[in-house]
Amino acid sequence: MSSTEQGTSSAAPAEPTTAPESAAAPEVPESFYYVHGKDKVVHKVSAGALQHSALIHGMISNLGYTEEQAKANPFPFENIDGDILQMVVDWCNQHKGKPTPPEDTNLPKQKEKLFDLVLAVNYLEIKELLTYCCKQVAMMVKGKSPEEIREIWMIPTDAEDEAAEKEAKKRAGKEAAGETAAAAGDAK
């Protein structure tokens, strides 16, 4: 359903290849759109699969692109790593037009990958996948003591929070004093 090809950093996206979509062709020809992440690899995705993303769905619903226009104007998601976007595209394809199951066991187990996936999914507004990701993140601290939870999620201690708060206040005070001085200078 989707295909990827190593793109270049130029504005024109590389020509993607199309994998066979399914055995039974849809009666109405489906429209496709193109997305790419930080790595510029372009992914061809059907409008049906993209419906999972409220952000992209909102973008495409008003465009009325032809196939050629869509190909020439892939949606750039420069804030999303290529491999993460690939995961998202795969998930959208797998769950296209299907009710989402209560659990998804195919999410990455590595902390950093999962962290990036959560941010991407949140940005793209894919509600169901975000719920799965949140569940997976929550599972990381199941059965852990408060100290272990602190370590896993890098949560500051009360003392660190207080120090950070003091520092922020100090900085805000300095900034306010700077602004007052600048305003006084302007007045002169």
Binding site: K111, E112, L114, F115, V118, L119, N122, L130, T131, C134, V137, A138, M140, I152, W153, M154, I155, P156
Partner: peptide, 15 residues
């Protein structure tokens, strides 16, 4: 993985 780096809505979703 730093929990506070997530947007508030995501933190809420995890909790």
């Amino acid at each position: 993985m730093k929990l506070s780096n997530y947007p508030h809505l995501v933190q809420k979703g995890i909790l």
